[in-house]
Structures are given as structure tokens and as C-alpha cells.
């Protein structure tokens, strides 16, 4: 079995952030298209994606919700579907929903 590449080779913080946002966007797009969308599972997975990038305050960071908005756009949802996901994934909080809107545009 080949071992996993080490992370001691430094990755710039910009690249890490970009990678994180791309992963959140791609995961969101797949998640909302799946028939068993479950918000709790979604949040658990986001936590794991963030942990991979050593990012702990993801839930309180605007960039997470901008990336979620980009994922919703990538999934080509209808307007009502988009609104429903925006509310549930944004915890009905105005700042999170605004960030989702920002990523969706």
C-alpha cells in the first residue's frame, strides 16, 4: 500500500483556502442533487472537509457560505429549491444567507 503524501511540504494559505472553498462547492452541489439530503449529515461532512484543511471555525466564516452558494448554483436548482436550501443550510441566519446569495450570483 502506498503511503499518503505528507503535508510537511508547505501549501500556501491561499491555496489551502482555495482548495477548501472548491471542495465545499463541489460537495454542496452533489449533496443537494442527492435524494437523501440531510442537513445534519451535510454539516458533519463540511466539518470533515474543513478538518482536512485544518480550518476549525468554518461554521462562523463567511467564505464557507459563499462556497455553499456557489455549490447551489453549480447544481442548477430551481428558484424554490434554492430558497429552501439557502434557508436550511444557512441556519436561517441573515449573514449566512446573504453570503450564500453572494456565492450564488
Amino acid at each position: 500500500m502506498a503511503s499518503s503524501p505528507s503535508s510537511l511540504v508547505p501549501t500556501s494559505k491561499e491555496k489551502k483556502k482555495e482548495g477548501y472553498e472548491k471542495d465545499v462547492r463541489d460537495y454542496t452541489a452533489e449533496y443537494v442533487k442527492s435524494s437523501d439530503a440531510n442537513t445534519e449529515n451535510f454539516r458533519t461532512r463540511l466539518g470533515k472537509i474543513a478538518a482536512k484543511y485544518e480550518f476549525t471555525q468554518w461554521d462562523q466564516d463567511k467564505s464557507t457560505y459563499v462556497a455553499i452558494g456557489q455549490g447551489l448554483r453549480k447544481a442548477h436548482l430551481s428558484k424554490p429549491q434554492y430558497e429552501a436550501f439557502k434557508t436550511s443550510l444557512g441556519d436561517s441566519l441573515p449573514w449566512k444567507m446573504e453570503a450564500i446569495d453572494g456565492g450564488y450570483k
Binding site: M1, A2, S4, P5, S6, V9, T11, K15, G19
Partner: peptide
């Protein structure tokens, strides 16, 4: 694609610098 226990094959995505460092 990497061989992982127990005898499975799994896709991986790595940063090239880390991949080069490892291999």
C-alpha cells in the same frame, strides 16, 4: 488509485508538490 486495506482500490486526490515529495 491506491490499494487500501482490506484489498480495495480507492481514488485519491493529492496536491502535486506533496505527491512528488512522497513518491
Amino acid at each position: 488509485f491506491q490499494h487500501v486495506p482490506p484489498g480495495l482500490l480507492r481514488v485519491r486526490r493529492d496536491n502535486y508538490e506533496q505527491f512528488r515529495d512522497q513518491y
